[in-house]
Computed example of a mutant assay.
Amino acid sequence: MTIGEISQEIGLSADTLRYYEKIGLLPNVPRDNSGKRNYDENFINWIKFIQTLKNSGMSLNDIIEYINLAKCGNNTYQERKNLLIKSKQILLEKMSNLQSMIEKANYQINNYDNILVPKTNALIF
């Protein structure tokens, strides 16, 4: 399967697939005689696995670490789980920050006429 074909099937750009290979997220993709990448079902499974971890909030660096740990065997079970826990904590922090921003936006909307309009007018006029 060519990079274009797998790109279309998976929904990732060819550039993203090349980048994943370059940074070590994907194993080296075999190439045909003309040098074109030749993906097989195993690579589709790799990409779907990467997407699963990415969709849970993991960074690409953490996914690389997770994969490297997994290659070391089951004795890295807890370390891999800790990466997932770390990703969840980061998401919770982001969610908290977003909630705080929403509250500030609500305050500004609710007090628009009394606070923001006078401040805006003082700066502009």
Rank of each mutant, 00 (worst) to 15 (best):
Met1Gly: 09
Met1Val: 07
Met1Ile: 11
Thr2Gln: 13
Glu5Ala: 13
Gln8His: 09
Gln8Ile: 04
Leu12Pro: 00
Leu12Arg: 08
Ala14Asp: 10
Thr16Asp: 04
Thr16His: 08
Arg18Ala: 06
Tyr20Ala: 01
Tyr20Trp: 10
Tyr20Ile: 02
Tyr20Asn: 05
Glu21Asp: 05
Glu21Lys: 08
Ile23Ser: 09
Ile23Leu: 08
Gly24Phe: 04
Gly24Glu: 03
Gly24His: 04
Gly24Tyr: 07
Leu25Lys: 02
Leu25Gly: 00
Pro27Lys: 14
Asn28Gln: 15
Asn28Trp: 03
Pro30Arg: 03
Pro30Ala: 06
Pro30Thr: 04
Pro30Val: 02
Pro30Gln: 07
Arg31Trp: 07
Asp32Thr: 02
Lys36Arg: 15
Asn38Pro: 01
Glu41Tyr: 12
Phe43Val: 00
Ile44Pro: 00
Ile44Met: 04
Asn45His: 11
Trp46Ile: 01
Ile47Thr: 01
Thr52Val: 09
Thr52Asn: 13
Thr52Phe: 09
Leu53Trp: 01
Leu53Asp: 03
Lys54Trp: 00
Ser56Ala: 09
Gly57Trp: 04
Met58Ile: 03
Met58Tyr: 07
Leu60Phe: 11
Leu60Gly: 03
Asn61Glu: 14
Ile64Leu: 15
Ile64Tyr: 03
Glu65Asp: 09
Tyr66Phe: 15
Tyr66Val: 01
Tyr66Glu: 02
Ile67Thr: 05
Leu69Pro: 11
Lys71Tyr: 06
Lys71Ser: 09
Cys72Phe: 02
Asn75Lys: 13
Asn75Phe: 12
Asn75Gln: 14
Tyr77Val: 10
Tyr77Arg: 15
Gln78Lys: 14
Arg80Ser: 04
Arg80Cys: 03
Lys81Glu: 08
Asn82Trp: 00
Asn82Tyr: 02
Asn82Phe: 00
Lys88Arg: 14
Lys88Gln: 12
Lys88Gly: 02
Lys88Ser: 04
Ile90His: 10
Leu91Met: 12
Leu91Asp: 06
Leu91Asn: 13
Leu92Gly: 00
Glu93Met: 08
Ser96Lys: 14
Asn97Tyr: 10
Asn97Gln: 12
Leu98Gly: 01
Leu98Gln: 07
Leu98Pro: 06
Leu98Ile: 14
Gln99Lys: 13
Met101Leu: 15
Met101His: 07
Glu103Trp: 00
Asn106Met: 12
Tyr107Val: 05
Tyr107Glu: 13
Ile109Trp: 06
Asn111Glu: 09
Asn114Cys: 04
Asn114His: 06
Leu116Ala: 09
Val117Arg: 11
Pro118Val: 02
Pro118Ser: 05
Asn121Pro: 00
Asn121His: 10
Ala122Tyr: 02
Ala122Glu: 14
Phe125Arg: 14
